[in-house]
Amino acid sequence: MLKVKDLNVHYGKIHAIKGISFEVNEGEIVTLIGANGAGKTTILQTISGLLKPSEGMISFEGENLNKVPAHQIPVMGIAHVPEGRRIFAEMTVFENLQMGAYIRKDKDQIQEDMEKIFLNFPRLKERIKQIAGTLSGGEQQMLAMGRALMTRPKLILLDEPSMGLAPLLVDEIFNMIQTVNDAGTTVLLVEQNANKALHIANRAYVLETGYIKLSGNARDLLVNPEVQQAYLGG
């Protein structure tokens, strides 16, 4: 579904991504794990067109994404839940979800999708008229995911969904990622919480300062001594 080949990204003179290749197949949950500064967020931002690669190619369902502007990426079926949630803080929950459906014109189905999202995230329904900035961190994360799902994506890019959340909420968020995936959306998940991410993912890539150090089945990586020592704390 998504193929990334020899990707290189520079921030000015800094070479952040040094020739990375990976792919995501339809229906999978694939996770990119690694420490701060490994380049996880950069990769997601490059896929969704917010950054331009200096070399390499990204293709989605056979189409080259390199020249597609950022606002056209959701039209192609890729939704990005950015790091730090980035909800529209002064709009209501309802308006946030409406903005998510910006690219769509099918009014009845938008309504239907919103109901589906409320089914998965009942807390958003309770707070539908609330100003989004007043939600708790976990609710904001749910809203950011809901907003992304409103584009009806085939692939959803999740950037550190567990960041800054209480452990109980982290479990809840990961359950929701699983639910979203069960409903047929492919997931590319970037996480620092390697343990959690490896538990729900099918496959994983371990990043280290701009290149892929390890890759494979998530379950195998979970017991890999190298991974255990570096990312799972023992």
Partner: peptide, 19 residues
Amino acid sequence: RAIISIREDEIASEAAGIP
């Protein structure tokens, strides 16, 4: 709304498909 969403968060707007 699209204009207001740019004020709220430009990156998120772009990611939602707003030019």
